[in-house]
């Protein structure tokens, strides 16, 4: 079957787009590897209008049920390749191939890794990307957090509730998080902030035992820690779009017009992956992007591809 539209990504943008696509009577499919996307990592969401507080998992389940209830089909799979054929786009997953007249790219962002020796080897053995999930495993231990933004600050504060010592390591001279948060960190006796420093290596035997810094801290480049939490931001998951010739900005975000249209005919984009509000990463803006793009896709299919 050839779909009118295939939505790549099943986070807030992709699922909201599916809801709008159903109301526009577009035959469509949503393909994503994590249903709900990065929004599922949010423990408490307090800014989704109409709902005072809800967990990310719960809200995204509501999105999913809403989309499916209207007839949207969601396939859980990782996208392996994208191609523009003579008439249709071809989307390959690791198990099947699909065809569509138009695609909406809502692949979001993924966590930036440090790309240093030991990072992959010790994943789950002291290297973590989720302080909410893993802080309890570091009771009375020494941990480090890498990063200087709000998520790094939140991770450091949370870890200080369990760990005996938290080193917040940042490459810059001044933290990027909100000023009130900086004061809180500085007031916490368990937290020490190490500025102007990068982590070069993660070492240990069966689990993390130390990290290597590029500057001396208390006369040593070796810092003994039991864990390292990586909170250095996110990057757009736009690698697959090169094959289609989709224009990206310098940071790799997809360049779109106000309706979510890219430079390639039939290719639209929405959510955290687009260039309009990079780093804002809100469920409400991603949902709006998804809805807006469907309006443009609908017009394209009606007027250009009738």
């Amino acid at each position: 079957m050839i779909y009118d539209l295939i939505i790549l990504g099943a986070g807030p943008a992709g699922l909201a787009a599916s809801i709008y696509a159903s109301y526009h009577k577009l035959s469509h499919l949503v393909i994503g590897d994590i249903i709900g996307g990065t929004a599922t990592e949010a423990v408490k969401i307090k800014n989704w209008p109409g709902t005072e507080m809800i967990s990310g998992v719960e809200l995204m389940q509501k999105f999913q049920y809403h989309a499916e209830g209207l007839g949207g089909k969601i396939v859980q799979a990782k996208i392996a390749g994208l191609k523009k054929g003579e008439e249709y786009f071809e989307i390959n997953t690791n198990s099947e191939n699909y065809q569509a007249k138009a695609i909406l790219v809502a692949l979001g962002t993924r966590r930036r890794k440090m790309n240093i020796p030991g990072e992959d080897k010790f994943l789950g053995k002291g290297v973590s990307y989720c302080a909410t999930c893993d802080s309890m495993f570091f009771k009375n231990k020494t941990v480090s957090v890498v990063g200087g933004g709000n998520s790094a600050a939140m991770a450091a504060s949370l870890l200080a509730e369990h760990a005996s010592k938290v080193f917040l390591i940042y490459r810059g001279a001044e933290l990027r998080c909100e000023p009130a948060t900086v004061d809180q960190l500085k007031a916490n006796s368990k937290i020490s902030i190490i500025y102007n420093t990068n982590v070069l290596e993660v070492n240990g035997d069966k689990k993390v035992e130390s990290i290597i810094l590029d500057n001396d801290y208390q006369d040593s480049k070796i810092l003994k820690v039991d864990g390292i939490f990586v909170e250095i931001g996110a990057m757009p998951s736009s690698d697959l779009l090169n094959e289609l010739g989709v224009k990206l900005n310098e940071q790799g975000y997809v360049a779109v017009d106000q309706w979510g249209k890219t430079n390639v005919s039939g290719v639209y984009a929405a959510g955290d992956i687009i260039s309009n509000t990079p780093g804002f990463n809100q469920i409400i803006t991603a949902s709006a992007d998804g809805a807006t793009a469907i309006n443009a896709v609908y017009k394209y299919l009606k007027e250009v591809r009738k």
Binding site: I34, I35, G36, T40, E41, A42, V43, S55, G56, V57, Q76, C130, T132, C133, M136
Partner: peptide
Amino acid sequence: WAPWCGPCQMVGPI
């Protein structure tokens, strides 16, 4: 898993 871990909730149905 643990109840407070968002990503764990995703693994549950799988």
